[in-house]
Nucleic acid binder design. Structure first.
Lengths: 224, 224
DNA sequence: GCCCATCTTGACGAATCCTTGACGCCGATG
DNA sequence: CATCGGCGTCAAGGATTCGTCAAGATGGGC
């Protein structure tokens, strides 16, 4: 099921969107201000974000920029402001689409479909195999010996970053800022703890990892 | 230069778009009806298509569908019709965005940028080959005889400096200050130790190096 | 309010990497 | 022919980083 994060400070509109989206088969999570929305985006890793500009605590374009600094999730902006300037600002900050209020719900849904079509399609085969385990990026699941492995959100997020860059070295800073945020660049402890978790769950011999390789002093690498 | 195909049967709008787009650095080709536009799309392989609905010979959604049947190029639709139905139809047919007339040119340009941002695929990293080994600067890997060679951070850093300046002489001071910092200009010991390491790992005959050449008294040189 | 899963934090031996110094080789020089 | 400086080699130690574990802290669901 496709996960959508709706960010809006108007409880009525929020409720209407939640009901409509759920009726069309989306899994909906919500946030009412900029700060909590960034947190929610990190934890839920939604497939698409619907963002109402004019939040109480943060500038709209700031939210977009923060999101973009670590995520490529498609962003659809809602706004009451029709001016060209606002649109250009939001789009150039990293938004993918911009609808002005009032809008038709069917138009919103159609634009949502258009965005999702783009973001899922280019993933040729969202399934990555590493002979010991299989990662399905679309379904957000991992299998090992035909058995599904349960990962915590953070474990998954970290695995996803590595798996999306096969063979490529991902630096500790990249991982930390992707998963925990740019402010955590010094907490390399987290990496060690979670890498151990991942290896225990995924590697046949976690003492001699074959797919989740550490490059001492630099970062980690996923080898299919 | 980014190639844009503009499809519009209104010669004035067409001219305005051409001039604006060219002024912003795009290469513009045009078509005035459905049939010729499909031909143009095949021949020019544009990076993005701007399509005005309401062409004389074909239905707008038909053009989109035809295009989509063989191309994934982003499509931005212009239309005079504000109805939800038209938008939904176009978007579900495969369009990526939909603007209604009249529209601001800067909004059009911003939406164009948003579409193009999505479609640039992750470029493959530059690979440097030296017939005995290959260096992938993007993945940060070195291969020799198809086998991956593991380098320590310092080894890699030093190799990187040399490989980024093929055939060029890199002085000892340049190497030292790049890898260890400007304060280490006297520690030519390091260079000897690490150059030996690199040659042992990479050169077929480390006693007679063919790619990592010493220029006595001056520095080192990488020869592909 | 309690329980459970998850995340954070700190400490420890183990593994890896960097530094340092000694030694021999070679060509240049006097 | 003897000396000297620059280079390659090697290995030991010390410094840094990594893997591992387990005990709190946190937060959501009931």
């Amino acid at each position: 099921m496709t996960a959508v994060l709706v960010i809006d400070d108007d409880p009525y509109l929020l409720r209407a969107l939640r009901i409509t989206l759920q009726a069309h088969g989306y899994a909906v999570s919500t946030a009412a201000d900029g700060r909590s929305s960034l947190l929610a985006a990190r934890q839920n890793a939604p497939a698409v974000v619907i963002l109402d500009l004019g939040l109480p605590d943060m500038d709209g374009t700031s939210v977009i920029r923060e999101l973009r600094s670590w995520s490529e999730v498609p962003i659809l902006v809602l706004s009451a402001r029709h001016g060209s300037e606002d649109k250009v600002q939001a789009l150039d900050a990293g938004a993918d689409d911009y609808i002005t209020k009032p809008f038709g719900l069917d138009e919103l849904l159609a634009r949502l479909r258009a965005l999702l079509r783009r973001s899922i399609d280019p993933e040729q085969s969202p399934v990555i195999t590493a002979d010991a385990f299989t990662v399905d990026l679309g379904k957000r699941t991992v299998q090992r010996d035909g058995q599904e492995v349960r990962l915590t959100p953070t474990e998954w997020h970290m695995l996803e970053v590595l798996v999306r860059n096969p063979e490529k070295l991902v630096t500790q800073q990249q991982l930390l800022s992707e998963v925990w945020g740019p402010a955590y660049a010094k907490e390399t402890n987290y990496l060690r703890v979670y890498m151990a978790q991942l290896r225990r769950k995924l590697e046949p011999d976690s003492a001699n990892p074959r797919h989740l390789i550490t490059e001492a002093g630099i970062g980690y690498r996923f080898r299919p």
